[in-house]
């Protein structure tokens, strides 16, 4: 597998009032194309910061982030926007759908950003929601909303999808279903996933598990035989 992402000595420092808070302290990490990576760590370990930096919605204070060989840490605002458009799909804990747009329109909102997007209905079918395409988020269950969010991430055909606690707001069964959809996309379409979670059980389905602690990679575990989402239990 080709290397998709490389982080080299990445630091991120936030200024909180008079205090400097180091969210990342020299993080090094490689992610290969087509991998399903789960990032585990306690609150404040830098999980979300890592996603934000890789997704190009934040910039590192120090260090390099290479995406397909391009150092995105030195990109300007406009170039980062293009990076987000073309390379990354986001999935959030609270789904973050636009409440005034239907499921299909939420997906199209992302589709319209790229040259050759996938068909909105097709990706909704991939996540099993074609029949709910004309419903507004308020008319959908939590699991359905998260699947719309996955479809929205998928429609641009990005090489990388970043998922921040995607099951955090879902019940056990719905959570497993959503993870199943993500795993299928990863396997069938070769999309790389970096999934950040508190839930260590989810790590069992990953190709690799990255443990963060105090803004650094504490350890990386490779799953030789990742579990199927249906087998998970928490």
């Amino acid at each position: 597998m080709n290397e998709l992402l490389r982080l080299v000595d990445v630091w991120k420092t936030y200024r909180m009032g008079a205090v400097d808070v180091h969210a990342l302290r020299g993080m090094d990490l490689d992610v290969k194309s087509g991998e399903f990576v789960v990032v585990l760590g306690p609150s404040g370990s830098g999980k979300t910061t890592l996603l934000n930096l890789v997704g190009g919605i934040d910039t590192p204070t120090k260090g390099d982030i290479l995406f397909n060989g391009i150092n995105i840490s030195s990109l300007n605002e406009a170039e980062l926007t293009i990076h987000r458009r073309e390379n990354v799909g986001f999935i959030f804990q609270f789904f973050n759908l636009i409440p005034t747009l239907t499921a299909r329109e939420n997906v199209m909102l992302a589709a319209e950003l790229v040259e050759n997007p996938r068909d909105a209905d097709e990706v909704l079918e991939v996540v099993g929601l074609k029949h709910r395409a004309d419903h507004f988020p308020s008319e959908l269950s939590g699991g359905e909303q998260q699947r719309v969010a996955i479809a929205r991430a998928l429609v641009k055909s990005p090489p990388l999808i970043l998922a921040d606690e995607p099951t955090g707001s879902l019940d056990f069964e719905t959570g497993k279903m959503v993870l199943g959809v993500m795993r299928d996309i990863n396997r069938d379409e070769g999309v790389t996933f970096i999934l950040v979670t508190h839930n260590s059980v989810i790590a069992e389905m990953a190709d690799r598990v990255v443990h963060l602690k105090d803004g650094k990679v504490a350890r990386i575990i490779v799953n030789e035989e990742p579990a199927e989402p249906e087998e998970l239990s928490w």
């Binding site: 997704g55 458009r85 959030f92 636009i98 909102l109």
Partner: peptide, 14 residues
């Protein structure tokens, strides 16, 4: 504000 953040994350420019 949240939606704006999402739009930005999706790739919409300033």
């Amino acid at each position: 504000t949240g939606s704006i953040a999402i739009l930005r994350a999706l790739g919409y420019s300033r």
